[in-house]
Amino acid sequence: MLLHVSTACAAGEQEGLIPEKPFLMGETLREGTHLDIESELNLIKGTLIQLNNNFSSEKTERRIMKELGLERARQFGWPNTYVFTKAMGEMVLGHLGCKLPVVIVRPSIITSLLKEPLPGWMEGIRTIDSVILGYARQALKFFLVDPDTIMDVILHLVNIVLCGVFSRRCNELSGKYRLAMKLIELYAPYTLFKGCFDDMNLERLRMSTEQNNDGEYYFDFDPKTIDWDDYFYKVHIPGVLKYLA
Protein backbone atom coordinates (compact mmCIF):
# COMPACT_ATOMS: atom_id res chain seq x y z
CA MET A 1 0.00 0.00 0.00
CA LEU A 2 1.17 3.53 -0.80
CA LEU A 3 0.21 6.43 1.45
CA HIS A 4 0.36 9.83 -0.25
CA VAL A 5 0.04 13.06 1.73
CA SER A 6 -1.67 15.72 -0.35
CA THR A 7 -3.60 18.77 0.90
CA ALA A 8 -7.24 19.69 1.30
CA CYS A 9 -6.38 22.95 -0.44
CA ALA A 10 -6.00 21.01 -3.70
CA ALA A 11 -9.75 21.62 -3.96
CA GLY A 12 -8.96 25.21 -4.90
CA GLU A 13 -11.47 27.95 -4.12
CA GLN A 14 -14.64 25.89 -4.37
CA GLU A 15 -17.71 26.67 -2.28
CA GLY A 16 -20.23 24.48 -0.51
CA LEU A 17 -19.71 20.83 0.41
CA ILE A 18 -16.54 19.41 -1.15
CA PRO A 19 -16.66 15.59 -1.43
CA GLU A 20 -13.79 13.18 -0.86
CA LYS A 21 -13.03 12.05 -4.37
CA PRO A 22 -9.80 11.64 -6.34
CA PHE A 23 -8.79 13.90 -9.20
CA LEU A 24 -9.09 12.20 -12.55
CA MET A 25 -6.27 12.60 -15.05
CA GLY A 26 -6.80 15.85 -16.95
CA GLU A 27 -9.51 17.14 -14.62
CA THR A 28 -9.44 20.86 -13.79
CA LEU A 29 -11.36 23.30 -11.62
CA ARG A 30 -12.20 25.62 -14.51
CA GLU A 31 -14.98 24.61 -16.85
CA GLY A 32 -13.97 24.22 -20.49
CA THR A 33 -10.31 23.43 -19.80
CA HIS A 34 -8.34 20.19 -19.90
CA LEU A 35 -5.01 19.60 -18.17
CA ASP A 36 -2.27 17.75 -20.04
CA ILE A 37 0.52 17.17 -17.50
CA GLU A 38 3.01 16.16 -20.19
CA SER A 39 2.38 19.43 -22.02
CA GLU A 40 2.91 21.38 -18.81
CA LEU A 41 6.25 19.64 -18.24
CA ASN A 42 7.31 20.40 -21.81
CA LEU A 43 6.33 24.04 -21.32
CA ILE A 44 8.55 24.23 -18.25
CA LYS A 45 11.49 22.59 -20.04
CA GLY A 46 11.08 24.81 -23.10
CA THR A 47 10.95 27.99 -21.00
CA LEU A 48 14.07 27.00 -19.07
CA ILE A 49 15.95 26.25 -22.30
CA GLN A 50 14.96 29.64 -23.72
CA LEU A 51 16.10 31.42 -20.54
CA ASN A 52 19.43 29.59 -20.61
CA ASN A 53 19.92 30.47 -24.28
CA ASN A 54 19.32 34.13 -23.38
CA PHE A 55 21.88 33.88 -20.54
CA SER A 56 19.28 35.01 -18.03
CA SER A 57 20.46 35.51 -14.46
CA GLU A 58 19.38 33.14 -11.72
CA LYS A 59 17.23 35.87 -10.19
CA THR A 60 15.47 36.55 -13.51
CA GLU A 61 14.97 32.84 -14.13
CA ARG A 62 13.45 32.34 -10.70
CA ARG A 63 11.07 35.28 -11.16
CA ILE A 64 9.92 34.21 -14.63
CA MET A 65 9.37 30.59 -13.58
CA LYS A 66 7.34 31.70 -10.56
CA GLU A 67 5.20 33.91 -12.77
CA LEU A 68 4.75 31.10 -15.29
CA GLY A 69 3.72 28.63 -12.58
CA LEU A 70 1.18 31.04 -11.13
CA GLU A 71 -0.21 31.79 -14.58
CA ARG A 72 -0.62 28.09 -15.41
CA ALA A 73 -2.20 27.33 -12.02
CA ARG A 74 -4.80 30.06 -12.43
CA GLN A 75 -5.39 29.03 -16.04
CA PHE A 76 -6.89 25.78 -14.73
CA GLY A 77 -8.62 27.17 -11.65
CA TRP A 78 -6.07 26.75 -8.83
CA PRO A 79 -4.91 29.83 -6.86
CA ASN A 80 -1.20 28.96 -6.72
CA THR A 81 1.43 26.45 -7.81
CA TYR A 82 1.49 24.60 -4.48
CA VAL A 83 -2.08 23.32 -4.69
CA PHE A 84 -1.84 23.00 -8.49
CA THR A 85 1.10 20.59 -8.31
CA LYS A 86 -0.49 18.73 -5.40
CA ALA A 87 -3.58 18.08 -7.54
CA MET A 88 -1.41 16.91 -10.44
CA GLY A 89 0.43 14.57 -8.08
CA GLU A 90 -2.87 12.96 -7.13
CA MET A 91 -3.75 12.53 -10.79
CA VAL A 92 -0.46 10.81 -11.57
CA LEU A 93 -0.78 8.45 -8.59
CA GLY A 94 -4.33 7.57 -9.52
CA HIS A 95 -3.28 6.88 -13.10
CA LEU A 96 -0.11 4.88 -12.38
CA GLY A 97 -1.15 3.14 -9.18
CA CYS A 98 -3.96 1.02 -10.62
CA LYS A 99 -2.26 -2.22 -9.49
CA LEU A 100 -1.21 -0.89 -6.10
CA PRO A 101 -3.57 0.19 -3.28
CA VAL A 102 -3.13 3.95 -2.90
CA VAL A 103 -4.37 5.97 0.06
CA ILE A 104 -4.50 9.75 -0.37
CA VAL A 105 -4.85 11.86 2.76
CA ARG A 106 -5.66 15.54 2.49
CA PRO A 107 -4.87 17.44 5.67
CA SER A 108 -5.76 21.09 5.87
CA ILE A 109 -3.35 23.52 7.59
CA ILE A 110 -0.75 21.55 9.49
CA THR A 111 0.44 23.05 12.76
CA SER A 112 2.72 21.85 15.57
CA LEU A 113 2.72 18.67 17.62
CA LEU A 114 0.06 18.41 20.32
CA LYS A 115 1.87 16.04 22.68
CA GLU A 116 4.62 13.59 21.82
CA PRO A 117 7.55 13.76 21.55
CA LEU A 118 7.82 17.56 21.95
CA PRO A 119 4.62 19.62 22.39
CA GLY A 120 4.66 22.59 20.05
CA TRP A 121 7.51 21.29 17.88
CA MET A 122 7.39 21.97 14.14
CA GLU A 123 9.74 21.74 11.19
CA GLY A 124 10.09 25.06 9.37
CA ILE A 125 7.73 28.01 9.05
CA ARG A 126 4.34 26.96 7.67
CA THR A 127 1.09 28.72 6.78
CA ILE A 128 -0.29 30.60 9.82
CA ASP A 129 3.09 30.60 11.56
CA SER A 130 4.27 33.37 9.22
CA VAL A 131 1.46 35.54 10.58
CA ILE A 132 2.23 34.64 14.21
CA LEU A 133 5.92 35.45 13.76
CA GLY A 134 5.13 38.67 11.92
CA TYR A 135 2.99 39.79 14.85
CA ALA A 136 5.54 38.66 17.46
CA ARG A 137 8.28 40.65 15.70
CA GLN A 138 5.98 43.68 15.45
CA ALA A 139 6.25 43.59 11.66
CA LEU A 140 2.57 42.73 11.15
CA LYS A 141 -0.14 44.65 12.96
CA PHE A 142 -3.17 43.41 11.02
CA PHE A 143 -4.21 40.56 8.76
CA LEU A 144 -7.10 39.83 6.43
CA VAL A 145 -9.15 37.01 7.95
CA ASP A 146 -12.69 36.56 9.20
CA PRO A 147 -14.59 33.35 10.05
CA ASP A 148 -17.71 34.81 8.41
CA THR A 149 -15.76 35.65 5.23
CA ILE A 150 -16.46 39.37 5.59
CA MET A 151 -13.49 41.44 4.49
CA ASP A 152 -12.22 43.75 7.22
CA VAL A 153 -10.26 46.54 5.55
CA ILE A 154 -7.86 48.52 7.76
CA LEU A 155 -7.57 51.96 6.18
CA HIS A 156 -5.77 53.74 9.01
CA LEU A 157 -2.41 52.09 8.28
CA VAL A 158 -2.66 52.94 4.59
CA ASN A 159 -3.25 56.58 5.43
CA ILE A 160 -0.23 56.66 7.73
CA VAL A 161 1.97 55.05 5.10
CA LEU A 162 0.97 57.60 2.48
CA CYS A 163 1.17 60.71 4.61
CA GLY A 164 4.91 61.21 4.03
CA VAL A 165 5.43 63.42 7.11
CA PHE A 166 8.21 61.39 8.72
CA SER A 167 10.40 59.74 6.13
CA ARG A 168 11.96 57.05 8.33
CA ARG A 169 8.66 56.11 9.95
CA CYS A 170 7.00 56.12 6.55
CA ASN A 171 9.54 53.66 5.14
CA GLU A 172 9.18 51.43 8.19
CA LEU A 173 5.40 51.31 7.93
CA SER A 174 5.58 50.89 4.18
CA GLY A 175 7.70 47.77 4.65
CA LYS A 176 5.20 46.39 7.14
CA TYR A 177 2.35 47.22 4.79
CA ARG A 178 4.06 45.41 1.89
CA LEU A 179 4.60 42.38 4.15
CA ALA A 180 0.94 42.40 5.15
CA MET A 181 -0.27 42.73 1.56
CA LYS A 182 2.06 39.94 0.42
CA LEU A 183 0.73 37.60 3.11
CA ILE A 184 -2.85 38.63 2.34
CA GLU A 185 -2.39 37.84 -1.34
CA LEU A 186 -0.83 34.48 -0.45
CA TYR A 187 -3.37 33.39 2.15
CA ALA A 188 -6.60 35.03 0.94
CA PRO A 189 -7.78 31.85 -0.87
CA TYR A 190 -7.64 30.10 2.52
CA THR A 191 -8.63 32.78 5.02
CA LEU A 192 -11.70 33.64 2.92
CA PHE A 193 -12.42 30.03 1.93
CA LYS A 194 -16.14 29.23 1.68
CA GLY A 195 -16.02 25.48 1.19
CA CYS A 196 -16.74 22.67 3.64
CA PHE A 197 -14.83 19.40 3.36
CA ASP A 198 -16.70 16.12 3.62
CA ASP A 199 -14.80 13.79 5.99
CA MET A 200 -17.12 10.77 6.18
CA ASN A 201 -14.38 8.38 5.04
CA LEU A 202 -12.11 9.55 7.85
CA GLU A 203 -14.94 9.42 10.39
CA ARG A 204 -15.77 5.83 9.42
CA LEU A 205 -12.08 4.92 9.81
CA ARG A 206 -11.95 6.52 13.26
CA MET A 207 -15.08 4.72 14.43
CA SER A 208 -13.74 1.43 13.08
CA THR A 209 -10.45 1.74 14.99
CA GLU A 210 -12.32 2.50 18.23
CA GLN A 211 -14.62 -0.49 17.83
CA ASN A 212 -11.74 -2.84 17.08
CA ASN A 213 -9.73 -1.78 20.11
CA ASP A 214 -12.19 -2.46 22.95
CA GLY A 215 -12.65 1.21 23.72
CA GLU A 216 -8.95 1.92 24.23
CA TYR A 217 -7.19 4.54 22.12
CA TYR A 218 -5.20 2.95 19.36
CA PHE A 219 -4.66 5.87 17.00
CA ASP A 220 -6.49 8.88 18.37
CA PHE A 221 -7.21 11.47 15.69
CA ASP A 222 -10.59 12.80 16.79
CA PRO A 223 -10.38 16.63 16.69
CA LYS A 224 -13.36 16.85 19.05
CA THR A 225 -11.16 15.64 21.92
CA ILE A 226 -8.76 18.59 21.56
CA ASP A 227 -9.08 21.72 23.68
CA TRP A 228 -8.23 24.12 20.84
CA ASP A 229 -7.88 27.24 23.00
CA ASP A 230 -5.47 25.43 25.29
CA TYR A 231 -3.56 24.03 22.31
CA PHE A 232 -3.04 27.34 20.51
CA TYR A 233 -2.26 29.49 23.57
CA LYS A 234 -0.21 26.97 25.56
CA VAL A 235 1.30 24.70 22.89
CA HIS A 236 1.37 26.01 19.34
CA ILE A 237 2.10 29.72 19.72
CA PRO A 238 4.79 29.12 22.39
CA GLY A 239 6.21 26.44 20.06
CA VAL A 240 6.40 28.90 17.17
CA LEU A 241 8.28 31.41 19.30
CA LYS A 242 10.58 28.75 20.76
CA TYR A 243 11.47 26.76 17.65
CA LEU A 244 11.11 29.31 14.84
CA ALA A 245 11.61 32.82 16.20
Results as ranks from 00 to 15, higher is better:
2 L>V: 14
5 V>P: 01
5 V>M: 13
5 V>Q: 04
5 V>L: 14
6 S>C: 06
7 T>E: 05
8 A>D: 14
10 A>L: 09
14 Q>S: 09
16 G>K: 07
16 G>E: 07
18 I>K: 01
18 I>E: 04
19 P>E: 08
22 P>L: 02
22 P>G: 01
27 E>V: 10
27 E>P: 02
28 T>M: 08
30 R>E: 12
32 G>E: 13
32 G>P: 09
33 T>L: 10
34 H>P: 02
34 H>I: 13
35 L>E: 04
35 L>N: 05
35 L>T: 08
38 E>H: 06
40 E>M: 10
40 E>G: 00
43 L>W: 02
45 K>R: 14
48 L>P: 01
49 I>N: 09
49 I>L: 12
51 L>D: 00
52 N>L: 09
54 N>Y: 10
54 N>Q: 15
56 S>Y: 06
58 E>D: 13
62 R>F: 04
63 R>H: 11
63 R>C: 08
65 M>E: 11
66 K>N: 14
70 L>F: 03
72 R>W: 01
74 R>H: 05
74 R>M: 12
76 F>H: 15
79 P>L: 08
81 T>R: 05
81 T>Q: 11
82 Y>E: 13
82 Y>W: 09
83 V>M: 05
84 F>T: 12
85 T>V: 14
87 A>P: 01
88 M>H: 05
89 G>C: 08
90 E>N: 03
90 E>D: 11
90 E>I: 03
93 L>S: 06
93 L>W: 11
94 G>Y: 11
95 H>Y: 15
95 H>R: 15
99 K>D: 15
101 P>T: 03
101 P>V: 06
103 V>T: 15
103 V>Q: 14
104 I>H: 04
104 I>G: 02
105 V>P: 00
114 L>N: 02
114 L>Q: 05
115 K>M: 04
115 K>S: 09
116 E>Q: 13
117 P>L: 10
118 L>V: 14
119 P>Q: 07
119 P>W: 01
123 E>W: 04
125 I>K: 01
126 R>F: 06
128 I>P: 00
132 I>F: 03
134 G>E: 08
135 Y>D: 00
136 A>S: 10
137 R>L: 12
141 K>N: 13
144 L>G: 00
145 V>E: 07
147 P>W: 10
150 I>Y: 04
154 I>S: 06
156 H>C: 06
158 V>P: 01
159 N>W: 08
159 N>I: 12
165 V>G: 03
166 F>M: 06
170 C>D: 08
170 C>P: 00
175 G>E: 15
175 G>N: 14
176 K>V: 00
178 R>N: 11
178 R>C: 11
180 A>M: 14
182 K>P: 00
185 E>C: 02
187 Y>T: 00
188 A>E: 12
189 P>R: 04
197 F>S: 02
199 D>F: 02
205 L>F: 14
208 S>I: 02
213 N>Y: 12
220 D>V: 02
221 F>W: 06
222 D>S: 09
227 D>G: 02
227 D>T: 05
229 D>T: 07
230 D>W: 03
238 P>M: 10
240 V>S: 02
241 L>Q: 09
243 Y>Q: 09
244 L>T: 00
